[in-house]
């Protein structure tokens, strides 16, 4: 089960020459600094951007010959882009109604996993950022995609919402098992969600492999020795912000 991608596309600062194979089950992270061409790659895979040459094969099915509206590729961005003139429910039904073949991804399952049942009759402008992203995810899932593209879906959210939505993404990954390409420049998100990692810099793939190998978690453990004071790696540090009781374990990761 493989997703095979080869995209060549001229951009402003450099040209994109991306070639990678990813497992078609599980979540693959496209990881790299801002401006590396990760979002441009997703746009090209979705068929929403002009390319010099593109090959997108999912389990042997060639997607690049199809126009974007027939590729059945779900796409969620940093901004939810919910249709403002439609209620949440009509937004969710938009892709659902245009999926004319079988619908293996069930309506109730999506609403349940993303916890958006109570939002159905609201207008998009009345939702919080986190709620909008969950609706956007639901809308994409209900269109019965064979591949889901997530372009930094949580980077516009504050830390608490970010954590919450990442939890929902992990849940939908578990529940629906469809291949996901996830763009981020956050190592934390990559480690949390990614099975496979493709590292992109300056429009080229510089490494690919299991996330654990390419982004080993770096972590130090320490102990709180007195309120506001911790001992890490043999050193004592003043950390007035840490109000945990003495004996608590402190973990620093990066």
């Amino acid at each position: 089960m493989t997703l095979s991608v080869a995209i060549r596309r001229p951009l402003d600062a450099f040209s994109l020459d991306i070639v990678f194979d990813a497992p078609a089950d599980g979540l693959t992270v496209l990881f790299g600094p801002s401006g590396a061409g990760k979002s441009a790659t997703l746009a090209a895979i979705a068929g929403l951007a002009p390319t010099s040459s593109a090959r997108v094969d999912l389990n042997g099915v060639s997607l690049d010959a199809l126009p974007a509206e027939r590729r059945r590729i779900g796409f969620v961005h940093q901004q939810a882009h919910l249709f403002p003139h439609m209620s949440v429910e009509r937004n969710l039904r938009y892709g659902w109604m245009r999926a004319t073949e079988t619908r293996p991804i069930a309506w109730d399952a999506v609403i349940g996993v993303l916890g958006i049942g109570h939002l159905l009759h609201r207008a998009p402008r009345d939702l919080s950022g986190g709620e909008r992203q969950r609706v956007a995810l639901g809308r994409a899932l209900l269109s019965q995609p064979r591949l889901l593209l997530l372009d930094e879906p949580v980077s516009a959210l504050d830390a608490a919402r970010r954590d919450e939505v990442l939890g929902f993404i992990a849940a939908l990954k578990e529940r629906f098992g469809l291949p996901i390409l996830y763009v981020t420049h956050s190592a934390e998100e990559a480690r949390r969600l990614g099975d496979w990692l493709v590292r992109i810099e300056q429009g080229r793939v510089v490494a690919q492999g299991p996330t654990a190998e390419l982004l080993p978690a770096r972590e130090l453990a320490g102990e709180v020795i007195a309120p506001g004071r911790i001992r890490v790696d043999g050193r004592d540090l003043d950390m007035p912000g840490i109000d945990a009781p003495a004996g608590s374990i402190v973990r620093i990761s990066w």
């Binding site: 929403l48 779900g74 796409f75 882009h81 249709f83 892709g95 999926a99 269109s143």
Partner: peptide, 20 residues
């Protein structure tokens, strides 16, 4: 971006013109 979103959800050009 709304039109692109509609496109990814399976709407062709006439569909997008009329619904979005």
């Amino acid at each position: 971006a709304l039109e692109d979103a509609a496109r990814a959800l399976g709407a062709g050009p006439v569909d997008r013109a009329v619904t979005i």
